[in-house]
Measured scan of single mutants.
Amino acid sequence: VTLFVASYDYEARTEDDLSFHKGEKFQILNSSEGDWWEARSLTTGETGYIPSNYVAPV
């Protein structure tokens, strides 16, 4: 399981994006799509795309 933590807050801009807060942890589901990764929030359980430059490895 690949875990990352949010370095910043992010507000979703499309329905496919995932909003999150600094400190929130994610399981990365797919990182092969470039700068936007499909992730599941371990806080909310929601799945969506997050900007990879807003998160760091745990």
Rank of each mutant, 00 (worst) to 15 (best):
S19F: 02
E24W: 06
Y49R: 14
S7M: 15
H21D: 06
V1L: 13
L29V: 08
S31M: 15
D17M: 14
E33R: 14
P57M: 09
E15R: 11
V5D: 04
E46L: 14
T43Q: 08
G23T: 01
N53W: 15
R40G: 01
T44D: 03
L29Y: 06
R13H: 09
P51K: 06
Y54L: 14
I50E: 00
V1C: 15
S41E: 02
L18S: 00
A39T: 02
K25F: 15
G45V: 01
V5G: 03
P51G: 03
H21Y: 10
A12T: 05
A12W: 03
I28W: 01
Y10P: 01
N53C: 14
Y49S: 05
L42E: 07
G23N: 05
L42C: 15
I28M: 03
G34C: 13
E24Q: 06
T2F: 11
Y54K: 08
V58C: 12
G34Q: 12
Y8A: 13
V1N: 14
R40I: 11
V55T: 04
F20Y: 02
L42H: 04
A12H: 05
K22M: 08
E24F: 03
V58Y: 10
D9E: 06
T47R: 10
T14K: 13
V5S: 05
G34N: 11
D17C: 15
V5A: 07
D35S: 09
G45I: 01
R40N: 03
E24K: 00
A56K: 15
P51F: 06
K22Y: 06
G34K: 13
G48Q: 00
D35I: 10
V5M: 09
E15D: 12
H21N: 10
F20K: 00
K22V: 10
E11V: 13
K25C: 12
S32L: 11
H21C: 14
K22H: 06
E24D: 15
G48K: 01
E33G: 14
T2D: 13
W36K: 11
V5Q: 09
E33C: 15
E15W: 09
D17T: 15
D9Q: 04
D16W: 15
V5I: 12
E38S: 07
D17L: 10
L18R: 00
F20T: 03
E11F: 09
R40M: 12
D17W: 11
I28N: 01
L18V: 05
D9F: 04
W36Y: 11
L29R: 04
